[in-house]
Write a protein that binds this DNA or RNA. Structure first.
Lengths: 194, 194
DNA sequence: TTGACGAACTAAATATATTAGTTTATAGTT
DNA sequence: AACTATAAACTAATATATTTAGTTCGTCAA
């Protein structure tokens, strides 16, 4: 049904993602994006709801992409191995798509329906991996939160340059953090059994 | 020696902090700030280096304030108790000063000299608390990174609304995360002794 | 062929940051 | 007490962005 074979929402969001990755999220402007797409700025309004709307779309597609990465990382692995692999995938995603990752975090109105769904999809992904641990539903959710806090916390501090001063490989720090997390989980289990 | 007893850098940054806390960091504008301070926008340029400069100052003073909170939280406590108390203080700070906390993370050019110093001050604070654990210097730094990743990761996901969907007390999740972290640290120690 | 629809356009309003250059109050000096 | 240097605040103007209103025009379907 589109009259001219020009833009559509998906290609706009994709271009926006590339632009954000290259220049940083707050240098993603509608005029810059329009320029790169070869159209005038107001034309974008036919497909997206302004700058905030674009940011929301970007965040949404970013969450979905992140979820796919996490799922792929867990294929053919179980328990500790799966969690470890997913945390590494989380970090790789944030490194490769810094602008998109930023958009996920700084999403305006993250309480929308679609955003909730996408967020819950990630929750489900991790919950599935946690099944063999035999946790209660409550404990599982606590653990998912811990999982995400660890992945996000490390990656985002790393991105913000907090770690640069101390010359110590961040790879090692991350590996060690994962190790501490998994160990902590185990000892938590033991305690609950007593 | 200021001619008119009007503005100075400190009061500008302070007002900017309040504004950011109320409205969010990206609704902190120079014109809004000038309006609240009862001056014209360009007058701010006598004291700060534009909007980016203001954000840098805000981030810097925020880091210092955060450090003071962490130090206060560790007074009279040691080891696990001190770490736990500091993580709670970290979270409280982020809750009470959301705009300032955001400024810390999104600081433009975080590689400046003053920023490095302020960041290292936090490093020192945590390193001091870690002393009784008898870790190597390397392990200490890994642990500080884990400490910050956990505190920041949880707090920032919480702020971004990721946790809202699942109705489970975030307080409990945080407490549990701290517990897992401290347990993991212990078991790490044991391993290294074998 | 024609008419409806929607995409892209131009034009214009609004908001913001930023620079240049001017005014003026105050502090320190004569 | 008058004077001068200084720095703070000002006005004016420019540039860049977002956003809205209203127009043009290609394409698809009847």
């Amino acid at each position: 049904m589109p009259s001219r074979p020009g833009l559509d929402r998906a290609s706009i969001v994709e271009a926006a993602g590339r632009l954000a990755d290259e220049a940083g999220l707050d240098r993603l402007t509608l005029s810059g994006l329009a320029g790169r797409l070869g159209v005038r700025t107001p034309s974008l309004y036919n497909h997206i709801d302004g700058l905030d709307g674009l940011r929301r779309e970007l965040a949404l597609s970013g969450i979905q992409e992140l979820n796919r990465h996490l799922q792929r990382a867990a294929i053919g692995k179980e328990s500790d191995k799966a969690l470890e692999s997913m945390l590494h995938a989380y970090r790789v995603f944030a490194h490769e798509r810094p602008g998109v990752y930023e958009a996920i975090l700084r999403a305006p109105n993250p309480d929308s329906m679609r955003m909730q769904e996408a967020s819950n999809a990630i929750l489900d992904t991790v919950l599935t991996v946690l099944e063999p641990y035999g946790l209660t539903r409550e404990d599982s959710i606590h653990t998912v939160r811990a999982f995400r806090a660890i992945g996000h916390g490390f990656v985002s501090l790393e991105a913000s340059g907090v770690f640069v001063g101390m010359d110590l490989a961040t790879d090692d720090s991350f590996r060690r953090l994962i190790f501490v997390f998994l160990r902590g989980l185990k000892s938590l289990n033991k305690i609950e059994l007593t």
